[in-house]
Design a protein around this nucleic acid. Structure first.
Length: 576
DNA sequence: GCCGTTTTCGGCCCGACTGTTTTCAGTCG
């Protein structure tokens, strides 16, 4: 897809124009970049099909930008961009990551000191050359050095799974403070993004100063880098940032709406306010000086003429249009889930750390589940000591015995028995059909030979999905957030075959988060059913379900799209 | 540079904080 390449150039153009102090054009380029990135079709194809006219139908693209896109498609370059790059040949992306450095300062640093990247910046700062520049001072130079230090340890965006527990613990200690009346998570964490840049807290406090002092002295705080009357920001030793905003109780709703974002979602909501002759800020929705709505998010959205939008949807990917029409989907919730069908037990690893079937069942019952599906690895996967046909059948017998016991004890709970079979290189399954047919269900996953080309992989997945015993395609695209790229695949092809064969696509709740939200949305639109599983390898991971739920919600999935919201009989019917 | 059923011209999201250029530009979210 050329979309991202062109978007990146447009972002660069926005930066250059900002430096030149050209009014309004930077935003125009930013908007166009964002618009290209959220496009599901390749601009090359759009152009091939409909020419310049089709390009100009893309939001934020007019005559001039359409010409630039055409130029890029034809030559791989855009002249104006090349010209700007020549004028300011610096590693802009890299330098912009330094806290407090923006495009304009970077330009001065280049012109006066020939700073082109982080290395030359550090050198200039250490030689004390920055402090004397016009517009710079001692403090700025010191901040740049500290910014560079932090950048070295900065882990960048961190996994939601790692950050959420820390953030919740911090939220809890904030709530314990006697002067704190209300507190909430905000930002990308409240939207449950896959990765988190920094952690945002919102509090209402009877004593803002006291709360802020408490916050900047939390254990793990390495540096306070901003502290005013309403806001404090800290760097944590673990390499991420946390922000605290103290707000008044009466504007809690508008502040929560504002600080939850996303930025693009907010820009649109503010524009809608303007169209209605109103003004929206974190302090409220106003007509002139008259406050119209501010105490709850519901009030704010309602006054803008739309439904309250779940945070997971607030990415400016069409949610506002739908909310204005009053047609938001009713997203799947954690409470809708009746069971989990991707769970590994110690049957595959008798002396290892995995849990027994009894323990897993007990925990699942405690969580209110109606069923839990055991899906141990199968024989091709040596690392996890996958089960042979014989071992699977033994496990099957044992599970049947346990179910008899549960029912004798009057428990409304069943263990289901499946397996997570391997999809071999040629698309065959590593367990005999005869044995597969005796299980309640089969999850099939790719665990090997992931470097195939699209065509081979498509044929491989198709063959697996066409196996009549395969019910669920496990972690369908093979990605692991921040760790492994998805393998080459054609998602349209996966969807087509899944639809035809009634194969269920898994939403894996572990750090795979596979399917991704954009794929979930496409599966939903095609009517392909999904299942949210945890892929539990350790009993505590049964709790990961909430991450799969948030992923599903970010993909606009509803209860009806997710089969493990069904009672057991209907679930088994659907699988068959 | 884009956009429009109030407009083809005149608008374009909003506010806090910092440091430095004593009144505001740059940066951030």
């Amino acid at each position: 897809m050329k979309n991202h390449e062109i978007a990146k150039i447009f972002r660069g153009m926005a930066t250059f124009l900002e430096i030149e102090k050209v009014p309004f054009k930077p935003q125009a380029y930013e908007r166009a970049a964002f618009s290209l990135e959220s496009l599901s079709e390749d601009v090359g194809e759009i152009y091939a099909k409909g020419g310049m006219k089709a390009l100009q139908e893309i939001a934020g693209i007019g005559k001039s930008l359409a010409e630039q896109i055409e130029e890029y498609l034809k030559s791989g370059k855009i002249k104006v961009h090349e010209k700007f790059k020549k004028e300011l040949p610096v590693a802009m992306d890299e330098l912009l990551r330094v806290e407090g450095l923006g495009a304009k300062k970077i330009k001065i640093l280049y012109e006066k000191l020939r700073v082109t990247d982080l290395k030359t910046l550090e050198k200039a700062a250490k030689l004390n050359k920055i402090a004397g520049l016009f517009g710079f001072g001692e403090k700025t130079e010191k901040n740049i050095l500290q910014g560079l230090e932090f950048l070295k340890r900065d882990k960048g965006r961190q996994l939601l799974h790692d950050i959420l527990p820390i953030a919740r613990a911090t939220l809890h200690t904030l709530e314990q403070q006697p002067e704190v009346q209300k507190a909430s998570l905000a930002g990308s964490l409240r939207r449950m993004r896959e990765t988190i840049g920094d952690v945002d807290f919102l509090v209402v406090s009877k004593n803002p100063k006291k709360t802020m002092d408490f916050f900047v002295n939390l254990p793990g705080v390495e540096k306070v880098w901003g502290k005013g009357g309403t806001k404090a920001s800290v760097h944590m030793i673990n390499g991420f940032d946390m922000d605290l905003r103290v707000i008044r109780a009466r504007s809690y709703g508008s502040a929560l709406q504002y600080f939850t974002g996303s930025k693009d979602h907010n820009i649109i909501t503010r524009k809608i306010a303007i169209e209605k002759g109103l003004k929206l800020s974190e302090y409220g929705l106003f007509r002139g000086k008259v406050m119209i709505a501010n105490s709850t998010e519901e009030q704010v959205y309602k006054a803008l003429g739309m439904q309250w939008i779940p945070p997971e949807m607030r990415e400016n990917s069409g949610e506002i249009e739908v909310a204005l029409q009053g047609k938001l989907p009713s997203l799947v919730e954690l409470g809708d889930i009746r069971g989990d069908l991707h769970v590994h037990s110690n049957w595959e690893e008798p002396k290892g750390a995995k849990s027994s079937l009894e323990d897993l069942a007990e925990k699942a019952m405690g969580m209110g589940y109606e069923y839990l599906g055991i899906s141990d690895h199968t024989k091709d996967l040596n690392i996890e000591r996958g089960l042979s046909e014989k071992e699977l059948l033994e496990e099957n017998k044992y599970i049947k015995k346990l179910n008899t016991k549960f029912s004798a004890e009057g428990k409304k709970f069943s263990l289901l028995h499946g397996c997570e079979a391997n999809i071999r290189k040629d698309g065959s399954i590593d367990i005999d059909d005869e044995v597969l047919s005796q299980l309640d269900y089969v999850v099939a996953s790719v665990h090997s030979h992931t470097k195939m080309d699209v065509k081979e992989m498509s044929a491989r997945l198709e063959r697996a999905m066409r196996n009549p015993h395969v019910d669920i395609l496990g972690h369908p695209t093979g990605r692991i957030v921040g760790n492994r790229e998805e393998y080459a695949h054609n998602f349209d092809h996966i969807l087509r075959v899944a639809k035809e064969t009634h194969t269920i696509l898994e939403i894996n709740s572990s750090s795979r988060l596979d399917l991704q939200d954009i794929y979930i949305r496409r599966a939903k639109n095609e009517g392909v059913k999904m299942i949210i599983n945890t892929d539990t390898h350790n009993i505590s991971q049964l709790n990961l379900m909430e991450f799969g739920i948030s992923q599903a919600r970010r993909g606009w999935a509803e209860k009806k799209d997710v089969i493990n919201t069904l009672p057991i009989e209907k679930l088994l019917d659907t699988i068959k």
